[in-house]
Design a protein around this nucleic acid. Structure first.
Length: 490
RNA sequence: CGGGGUUUAGCGCAGUUGGUAGCGUGCUACGUUCGGGACGUAGAGGUCGCAAGUUCGAAUCUUGUAACCCCGACCA
């Protein structure tokens, strides 16, 4: 009964799925490719959402909400966008059901066919820009800095809990600006926000960079991204921020009068992160004993398990613990005293480890006698017995310590599987081992495509930071401005 | 959409040459336990994914169909 989970070495995907289900985060829904996010999983998402929302507000953004349904014609307006998105979408064709004549339930009423089909939004650029057209007339109306928390649908051929579901929750920011410079700065600013959030809240280290033309968002002039690395060596795109230029303004005819009394097209950005971040969180930190959550996002930061033989003992322990619970709460720590009589201590230990609670405190008769308490850390799986007096100080300190430690652990892991590769032969060998490979590339889509076809590796991004030394493309030998990040990705 | 696999109790699974369904876990009650997923005793729980067919008889054989998982293709 000791091991709840299969070893990740057998099959990381299965390990991940099992972990998600066992940790009570989510399950597959009866609707194709969708998922049910369960209360514990949603509690984590809510914390992420709140933190992100605060960061958006702090950078001057406001929330709004736009329609779920997009008239099909909207999706035909931006040529590149159509190219990238026209394919895997849910389409509404009818608006009424009727009783099946044979009495077996309901059927779609053929008479209720929509004149123009509606697309369930795969992303909202089109519907939002058709709206912005009415909002923007003068430079005085700009900038518009809107964000939307919503669900979107993409009829993906293959789905996976949190990482790629047919329906998912996300936020999408859509901003309108008077100048190219301002829009570009906005896109970059939001990328920084995402990177900040990933590292400081999720404890997930990310590489910031710009996408190659092949990987760029349909309709964007430039796509910036943060790329994370999972424990099995595969990369995960954790967030994107797009500089859309004037493409959508052109497509939806959104113009404004500038200060020089001249009509001009509006400049745009869009940026988004989704419940996929939950996948990144799980796959970055978790181990065979279950989830490992960063304290900042953990719904329960500290769990206290009393160990007792009878009601009197429980009462005595709980009484002894009350001041500690109060002291921890006073420090803003989310603490749960689990005095549930129907579960045994060993069961609770395993359960909270599975759920990733960062710190567990246990107090039994022995501690009661000695005035001590056992403090266990989820990240290191270590235990120590400390004096009860003043332990809240220590526990509060652990919140920061654990947050830093798991980030450091993830950084160390990433560093251990990131290497520079200079020849294509070496690349083909190294890519099999997983991780990030830093290589020179001649900058052409053709070379990138060739590498992808032959090795399944893609350019995750052209990183902003790091070595900028020029070199020669590992495939063609043509000049390269800097090394780019290659990996196999989810 | 191609290749492979799965579908039997809440969950995980077994079920032989076709003979009317079982194990583990969980659940309920009682008792002993309680410092790493306790033990004993007694119980409850299943249209065997769905639909046809073969047969005296189908979880088992045939055909169709659906869902899920894995590997590809695809993917902000």
């Amino acid at each position: 009964m000791a091991k709840q989970l299969t070893s990740r070495s057998e099959n990381y995907s299965q390990w991940y799925n099992e972990l998600v289900v066992k940790a009570d985060l989510a399950e597959s829904s009866s609707v194709r490719g969708c998922m049910v996010i369960k209360p514990y999983g949603y509690a984590i998402w809510e914390r992420m959402q709140r933190a992100l929302d605060d960061m958006f507000k702090a950078t001057g953004h406001v929330n709004a909400y736009f329609p779920l349904f997009i008239p099909k014609s909207f999706l035909s307006k931006e040529a590149d966008h159509v190219e990238g998105f026209a394919k895997e979408c849910a389409v509404v064709t009818h608006y009424r059901l009727k009783q099946n004549p044979d009495g077996s339930g309901v059927v779609v009423d053929p008479a209720a066919k929509l004149e123009e089909e509606l697309i369930v939004r795969p992303t909202s650029e089109t519907i939002i820009w058709s709206t912005y057209k009415n909002w923007i007339h003068s430079y005085r109306d700009l900038p518009i800095l809107c964000n939307q928390w919503a669900n979107v649908v993409r009829w993906e051929m293959r789905t996976r809990l949190f990482l790629r579901t047919a329906e998912f929750l996300w936020q999408e920011g859509h901003t309108a600006h008077a100048t190219s410079q301002e829009a570009l700065e906005e896109a970059q600013r939001m990328l920084e926000v995402y990177a900040d959030f990933a590292e400081n809240f999720m404890a997930v280290p990310v590489i910031k960079g710009v996408k190659s033309a092949n990987e760029r968002f349909a309709g964007a002039v430039e796509t910036f991204c943060i790329e994370a690395l999972m424990q099995d060596g595969k990369a995960l795109q954790a967030g994107t921020s797009h500089f859309l230029g004037q493409n959508f303004a052109k497509a939806f005819d959104v113009t404004f009068m500038n200060k020089e009394n001249q009509q001009e097209l509006v400049w745009a950005t869009s940026w988004g992160v989704s419940t996929r971040l939950m996948g990144a969180l799980i796959m970055t930190h978790s181990d065979d004993d279950g989830l490992v959550l960063p304290p900042v996002l953990a719904p329960i930061q500290v769990v206290i398990v009393p160990i007792y033989k009878n009601d009197e003992q429980l009462a005595a322990i709980v009484e002894k613990l009350q001041p500690l619970v109060g002291a921890l709460k006073a420090r803003g720590i989310r603490v749960k005293l689990d005095d549930d009589d129907t579960k045994k201590p060993g069961w609770k230990f395993a359960e909270y480890e599975l759920k990733g609670v960062p710190v567990r405190l246990a107090m039994g008769a022995r501690d009661l006698e000695n005035g001590t308490i056992e403090v266990a850390r989820r990240d290191t799986m270590t235990k120590e017995t400390l004096p009860l007096e003043g332990v809240e100080e220590h526990v509060a300190g652990l919140m920061d310590t654990i947050q830093r430690n798991i980030l450091q652990k993830a950084k160390d892991f990433r560093a251990s599987v990131t290497r520079t590769v200079d020849t294509y032969d070496e690349f083909k060998v190294e890519i099999e081992k997983g991780g990030f490979l830093l290589c020179h590339w001649d900058g052409t889509p053709e070379t990138e495509e060739k590498i992808k076809e032959e090795t399944k590796a893609t350019i995750r991004c052209i990183p902003f930071d790091g070595d900028k030394t020029p070199g020669k493309c590992m495939v063609t030998g043509k000049p390269s401005k800097q090394r780019v990040v290659f990996a196999r990705a989810y």
